[in-house]
């Protein structure tokens, strides 16, 4: 079953423009100027049941606008969309019963109340039976490891704890689709990992489909099966995260540690020596120029290995590379 299907979605805003300074302010009163902003320019994609799709891109790329159109908050200028069989901007209220939303920068928990009170209020908002709400709260409390936090006023929770409660609240009515707008924004590494683990677990346990927007490439690596990269309101890349890695993760970094000291002028052909220490060396190479097993064999020949680590470049670097390619292609066309 297709959960989200959008085709040639466009969204144009008209915003006011004003020249700088007091003169500009006065002029804008008598002769207001407007500019048209194309936030989304012909986006098409779909998401199947139980899928985990990441929508990433820089600020102003059109991610939040797309999520808002899919929840029915905004209507598009052009194009078609179907979310769980509903047209979001025409059947917003019916759709709202079946989706959960989390806007990372817009808390939905009541700030002065313990999270459990918001959970119970949501039960009333979604018209659930009290008995079901109680069962659901205890299930989510266990799944999100928030049993000890439920009765603490939200204002006293850390950002990571609050975000876990936020996501749990958005799942109280067993939605079929979870829309997350920047769920990990502002969180530390440990809190991010916990949030990602929990979302993935809920996806696996309840088959809830997930669409998330993020700045953080780590969210995609840890959470998403598919990725769409958008920039200036257009899709610049979409594929499985594993394919993205295979296509763009062609460079590797290797760190080794030897049992005995190594020479300061340690060298090896076809690789970049990044750092040489007394016992270890860190180097980078392109697998298209030299296979990884050759590099590893040469490293093993250089001494008695004690430890070895191999890492891929971060997804941020990968995305930067895609942008460069896209921009390069555009310039070449021009």
């Amino acid at each position: 079953m297709t959960v989200i299907q959008i085709s040639n979605l466009r969204k144009t805003f008209t915003t006011k423009r004003k020249a700088a300074g007091l003169g500009g302010s006065v002029r804008s009163i008598f002769r207001p100027q407007h500019q048209v902003v194309e936030a989304v320019r012909g986006i098409s994609f779909d998401l199947g049941e139980g899928g985990r799709l990441g929508l990433i891109g820089p600020n102003g790329a059109g991610k939040s606008t797309t999520i808002k159109i899919l929840t029915g908050i905004l209507f598009p200028t052009e194009g078609e969309a179907s979310v769980l069989g509903y047209v979001p901007w025409k059947e917003r209220r019916q759709l709202a019963y079946h989706i959960g939303t989390v806007f990372g920068q817009r808390p939905q928990l009541w700030y002065h109340l313990p999270a459990i009170d918001t959970f119970q209020l949501f039960g009333k908002i979604y018209e659930l039976e009290d008995k079901d709400v109680k069962q659901r709260i205890s299930f989510l409390a266990e799944a999100f490891e928030i049993e000890d936090l439920l009765e603490t006023p939200v204002r006293k929770l850390s950002l990571g704890q609050r975000m876990r409660c936020e996501i749990a609240a958005s799942l109280i009515h067993r939605p079929k689709l979870l829309l997350l707008d920047e769920p990990s924004i502002g969180l530390d590494v440990v809190a991010k990992q916990r949030i990602r683990d929990t979302i993935r677990r809920m996806n696996e346990m309840e088959n809830v489909s997930v669409l998330l927007t993020s700045h953080d490439a780590g969210d995609l690596e840890a959470l998403c099966k598919r990725v769409i990269i958008i920039n200036h309101g257009q899709i610049v890349y979409q594929d499985r995260v594993s394919n993205l890695k295979r296509r763009y993760l062609t460079t590797k970094e290797v760190g080794v540690r030897y049992a005995r000291p190594i020479p300061k002028d340690f060298t090896m052909p076809d690789v970049n020596i990044l750092k040489v220490g007394k016992y270890g060396v860190k180097l980078g190479f392109d697998t298209r120029q030299i296979p990884a097993d050759v590099v590893l064999a040469r490293l093993a020949e250089s001494g008695d290995l004690v430890d070895i680590t191999i890492s891929d470049p971060s997804l941020e670097e990968v995305i930067a590379k895609i942008y460069q390619e896209v921009e390069g292609a555009k310039e070449a066309q021009a």
Binding site: K68, T71, G72, I73, R92, R93, Q94, A96, Y97, T101, F103, R106, Q108, I125, Y126
Partner: peptide, 8 residues
């Protein structure tokens, strides 16, 4: 936005 995303 928040109120628009709720079924009320």
């Amino acid at each position: 936005d928040y109120y628009l995303s709720m079924p009320r």
